[in-house]
Amino acid sequence: MYQPPSAATTGFPVSTNSTTSAAYSGATTTEYASHPLSKPLVEWSTGLCGCWSKWEQYEHCWWTFWCPCFTFGRVAAIIDKDSTSCCVSGSLYALLCCVFGSGYLYSCCYRSKMREQYGLKGNDCTDCMIHCCCEPCALSQEYRELQNRGFNMFTGWHGNVEQQTRGIAMATTAPAAESGMSR
């Protein structure tokens, strides 16, 4: 008879379903653990070839095509929350491209991290295939996704956090009132 792990073992609450399960040698009750925080996955905000919709994005895609290490460095800095800087990530990517001819294995790992952080649709296999077959399009899509989520790609993680906290602090304070005209 199948005995699933207890709640203390998995950390997830265990509930009982009273349906009959023929798969576990005639057991009359099946216990299962469900993930308490599962959210539905969402689509990417732009398509893989979304560069062609606006001129600003088209220009950025050309930069990504000719020098992907800059785009990758900025994306990695946001995803890693500045634990590795833009320069370090971009330089490592450039080094991998020079030594191995491509840095797609490194960059596809960041695509997977990004999907997990923001609940985006996809899987590790498609991440690897997209980066292997069309690295500039994949990096541009990730860059646009972060921009569409409100990140300023030029300031990094800490700059975005500071900008958000400054915006919240400013919104909660009343503006100073001027006292009429004076000379």
Rank of each mutant, 00 (worst) to 15 (best):
G103R: 01
D127E: 10
T64Y: 02
V161F: 06
C109I: 08
E56S: 15
A76Q: 00
C128V: 13
A23W: 05
Q163P: 00
G47W: 05
R115C: 03
Y2C: 01
K39F: 08
A23Y: 06
G90V: 02
T126V: 15
I79T: 10
T28C: 02
L95V: 11
C134W: 02
G159Y: 01
A76W: 01
I78E: 01
Q141G: 14
F154P: 00
Y106H: 12
Y32K: 03
G90C: 04
Q163S: 11
K54E: 14
T29D: 05
Y118Q: 07
Y24E: 00
I79S: 02
K54A: 13
E178G: 13
K81G: 03
A174R: 13
E142G: 08
W52G: 12
T172L: 03
M114K: 01
E116V: 06
C133Y: 15
G122T: 11
C137S: 14
P5V: 04
T29Y: 10
A94Q: 06
C67R: 05
G122V: 08
M1C: 06
A27W: 00
S25K: 06
M170Y: 05
T9Y: 09
Y143S: 09
T19N: 10
R74S: 15
E162A: 14
S107E: 07
L41Y: 12
H60L: 11
P13Y: 08
S182L: 05
S38H: 04
L120C: 06
A27N: 06
Q164W: 09
T46C: 05
Y24D: 02
L105I: 07
D124Q: 09
P175G: 07
S179K: 13
V42S: 13
H60T: 13
C134D: 02
T46N: 06
S85W: 03
A138T: 11
G167Y: 06
Y32A: 09
M1N: 06
G122H: 03
C87G: 04
T84S: 10
F100G: 06
G159F: 01
R115D: 02
L95K: 03
G90N: 03
C137M: 15
P68G: 09
E31I: 04
S112M: 09
G90E: 01
C125L: 14
S102N: 14
S21D: 06
Y32I: 07
